[in-house]
Amino acid sequence: MHTSLTDPAPAEPTSPTPEELEHQKAAITRLGDELRALMEATVRTAASPDTLHRVADGVRHITGQLTGRRRARAEIPEVDEFPGGARMYSPVTGPGSPLAPPLHITPDADGLVGHCTLGIAHEGPPGYGHGGMSAMLLDELMGRACAAAGTAGLTGSLQMRYHRPVPLETPLRVLARITGTDDRKVFVSGSITTGADPDAPLVTADGVFVTPDPDRARALFPGLRPQG
């Protein structure tokens, strides 16, 4: 296709407005809610093989409707606030992720507190959460505590202690707080309890998070938008 010198240059892509971003987030959240319900129904069903095959065909058809450009591996979605903020597709906190409980985070006097309820899709031992889910919940919240304090970092180490099984379908309380710093290292503690008995720890953890220097951060996250 020939382009003359008088043809207008292609328009630069425009950034979405705050209203457009909120509309997109609402749509992502709605789809995430339905996908979580589907996943939970999938792992609980005793439907016949014929029904499962029919549903699988329907899911394949639905998947085919998610057309358009696909996000690249290191690309940060426009709906995300990275680092330290909301991430719509996080497998821990993301309302758009079918894997996430999701964990809802609020500030607390001692750091950050998160609330969630694990479903059958997160099961390890029958009736209880998978130990990896506990580690993921704590790793996420402890990292977010670092970011909330202005020292966003990557997990250097995470020491877990499992005191009691974490029950499914039970409101949980996850807590993370910073206990100290040493240059680029941030020391964080965390715990998981039930919401009904916050003084009885089910899982506790101690972690070391490391803040990368600016050059390293740019190398690790090439899609990171400039701050300020």
Rank of each mutant, 00 (worst) to 15 (best):
R44S: 11
A46C: 14
A46R: 15
A47Y: 03
A47K: 05
S48T: 11
D50G: 12
T51F: 01
T51Q: 12
A56M: 03
V59L: 13
R60T: 14
H61F: 02
H61A: 15
H61Q: 14
I62E: 09
I62R: 09
T63I: 05
G64N: 08
G64V: 07
Q65I: 01
L66N: 08
L66P: 04
T67Q: 01
T67N: 14
G68K: 12
R69I: 01
R71I: 06
A72M: 06
R73N: 05
A74E: 11
A74C: 14
E75F: 11
E75K: 04
E75D: 00
I76D: 10
I76A: 04
I76S: 01
I76C: 10
P77F: 07
E78V: 04
E78G: 00
E78N: 08
E81V: 10
P83F: 13
P83S: 08
A86F: 06
R87K: 14
M88R: 14
M88K: 01
M88H: 06
Y89C: 10
Y89P: 07
P91A: 12
V92F: 13
T93K: 02
G94A: 02
G96S: 00
S97V: 01
S97Y: 07
P98S: 05
A100I: 03
A100Y: 01
P102L: 04
P102C: 14
P102N: 10
L103V: 06
H104R: 05
I105L: 10
T106M: 00
P107F: 02
D108H: 06
A109N: 09
A109E: 12
A109W: 05
A109Q: 00
A109D: 06
D110G: 06
L112H: 01
V113W: 03
G114N: 02
H115C: 04
T117A: 11
T117M: 03
L118R: 05
L118V: 09
I120Q: 04
I120W: 06
I120A: 12
A121C: 13
E123Y: 00
G124C: 13
G124F: 09
G124A: 07
P126Q: 01
P126K: 14
P126C: 04
G127W: 05
G127H: 09
Y128T: 11
G129P: 02
